[in-house]
Design a protein around this nucleic acid. Structure first.
Lengths: 133, 133
DNA sequence: CTGGATCCCAGGCGATACTG
DNA sequence: CAGTATCGCCTGGGATCCAG
């Protein structure tokens, strides 16, 4: 409640804009990932069962190979999923959630539940706002 | 667990790409908002106290007027915040969380807690991944 | 003081074609 | 099968100037 020199210390290294430390803020860091177009779809799809590249692509829907690869790489780098290569004649690669990845789905479910529960209110608010143009 | 014609029904209208229904999927809908660069900062900043435009701008940090205005509009449209104009000589406008907005901060806090708790693991995973180039 | 209008760039993302 | 490479579009978002 006291004065702060420039906003809340909490915010000090928040915005992504700061070129200082990439990944400085945990929340931004996680949110930037989760906010990406395909991340959640992939995580949820993998929650049902470990899957191979093409199965994943079919499961997720209309994702391009490019984005599937890219998102999988990022998730792998973050330790959310594992990638196992089986050196068969046509190579097959299986992706699976790690413990970390699985644990992330719990808080995400909380948010998702809120979204489902309040979506009607949001839509109503939008309709009202738009009507009031 | 049965066969689905084209992936999980859950995914049917998920991706933002679908021009069919904007806001068809609650989770995408909410996530697209929350994933935006400034949304969370503004919500959290307003949680501390209702604030006026310029106070908000200072509080959030290095946000431009453009983005502040835009994000506030979207949040207002979604019914997450309220906007009250006081017709003083130089007009002043106060923004505050609505009940809906306040309620959204709870699930967000859950996610945020997870992020804080696991950020070290994520950073470690990244370091390991990058080292293994 | 609180925005709106405009300009412009970087990056996200899709489509397509090629490879081990 | 599981990617990689390239291109090109479109949007997010910063900077700047204008207005009530």
């Amino acid at each position: 409640m006291t004065r702060e020199p420039r906003g809340n210390p909490l915010f000090a290294d928040w915005p992504t804009g700061r070129p200082a430390e990439p990944g400085a803020c945990p929340i931004r860091d996680v949110l930037d990932r989760v906010g990406q177009k395909w991340t959640l779809l992939i995580l949820i799809s993998l929650e049902r069962a470990p899957q191979r590249f093409s199965a994943l692509q079919r499961s997720v829907g209309d994702i391009s190979k490019r984005m599937l690869t890219q998102t999988l790489r990022e998730l792998e780098r973050d330790g959310m999923i594992s990638r196992t290569v089986y050196p068969t004649k046509p190579p097959s690669v299986e992706y699976a959630l790690t413990e970390l990845g699985r644990s992330s789905l719990q808080p995400i479910a909380t948010l998702s539940d809120w979204a489902s529960a309040n979506h009607d209110r949001i839509r109503a608010a939008r309709a009202a706002y738009d009507a009031a143009v």
